[in-house]
């Protein structure tokens, strides 16, 4: 049941980082001919380090603690009988992020589904500048999940490492102007232990965007798209062609941001909260009765 793909995972993450750094060198060379400009970092592309269940490139100032409450109700397909999912079983995550440096954040959290504990780290390797010498912010983001379910979920040859799952992501964002920001985030997800009908590894691509329509309010949109790549699949093409594909997690909502808070109220399809859960297991179709209501609240304390 258990299969170790950490080598492939490391290679995948390394290749993504190298490609990002190559892009940076390319950008830098183009600007060498222009006059030197005193570089100022651009303002963050997003108000919070969190957008729906996804990470953004935003990292709060050093020594800032961010408390996160994430909540997803059940799907709305039962209509008024369970008040459009509000009375249905819901998923909740409580998390704490701490910015060690202006470009380094660590976090911990606990999620209701699968009693998942998580450790997160996010590091900004590039910061967009106002002069556009560096046109994008690039973050590397890792989420390590530890499934707290009963031992028998992991088969007869139980080992503690079976509980681990990993989500490695490179996030590239750009604040185009005060109103519009966009980010793209390829990712590699690995579960040490997973049902034999599924693959241990999956590559995905995520995007997120923000359109600010008032000083504190924005329309936010996001999507996580799991990719079925035969080259990394453990199953035959014939099997995969007949298997039920995992569905993209599509989110659209409203964000209000204040000095110390960010609030998100949104519609989403996946009920997981950690990104690896949504990429690996989401079967809810946003366009076919798979919509649910979600909300996030963040609170900042500076030290």
């Amino acid at each position: 049941m258990m299969k170790n793909y950490s080598f492939i995972r490391v290679i995948g993450a390394f290749a993504l980082i190298v490609s990002m750094l190559s892009c940076y060198n390319g950008f830098a060379q183009e600007e060498e001919a222009t006059e030197p400009v005193k570089e100022r970092p651009a303002r963050p592309a997003f108000e919070s380090g969190l957008l729906f269940d996804a990470a953004t490139t935003t990292i709060q100032s050093a020594k800032t603690l961010e408390m996160i409450i994430q909540h997803r109700f059940g799907t709305m397909d039962n209509g008024a009988s369970d008040l459009f999912g509000i009375w249905a079983p819901s998923n909740i995550r409580l998390g704490m992020n701490f910015s060690i440096l202006n470009n380094l954040m660590v976090g911990i959290g606990t999620t209701k589904y699968n009693k998942m504990q998580d450790i997160q780290i996010k590091y900004n390797i590039l910061q967009q500048t106002r002069s556009n010498k560096i046109p994008v912010t690039v973050s590397v983001y890792e989420v390590i999940g530890i499934d707290g379910s009963a031992d028998d979920k992991f088969g007869v040859n139980y080992k503690f490492t079976n509980r681990f799952n990993y989500h490695t992501q490179v996030i590239i964002s750009r604040r185009f102007n005060d109103m519009f920001s966009l980010q793209l985030a390829p990712a590699f997800t690995h579960y040490n232990s997973i049902d034999s009908t599924l693959d241990h590894d999956r590559i995905s691509i995520s995007f997120a965007g923000r359109i600010k329509f008032s000083p504190q309010s924005s329309v936010i949109i996001g999507g996580d798209f799991p990719l079925q790549i035969q080259g990394i699949s453990e199953h035959t093409k014939e099997y995969n062609d007949n298997a039920t594909m995992m569905k993209p997690n599509i989110c659209i909502g409203y964000e209000v941001s204040t000095s110390t808070h960010a609030f998100h109220l949104y519609l989403a399809s996946a009920q997981g909260i950690l990104p690896q859960e949504n990429i690996m297991f989401n079967r809810n179709d946003f366009f076919d009765k798979g919509i649910l209501i979600g909300l996030n609240i963040t609170r900042l304390w500076s030290f």
Binding site: R43, A62, N102, S259
Partner: peptide, 12 residues
Amino acid sequence: PNFEKKITDEAD
């Protein structure tokens, strides 16, 4: 409150 960490850029 102190806002140095909320508005980090001097020109801002």
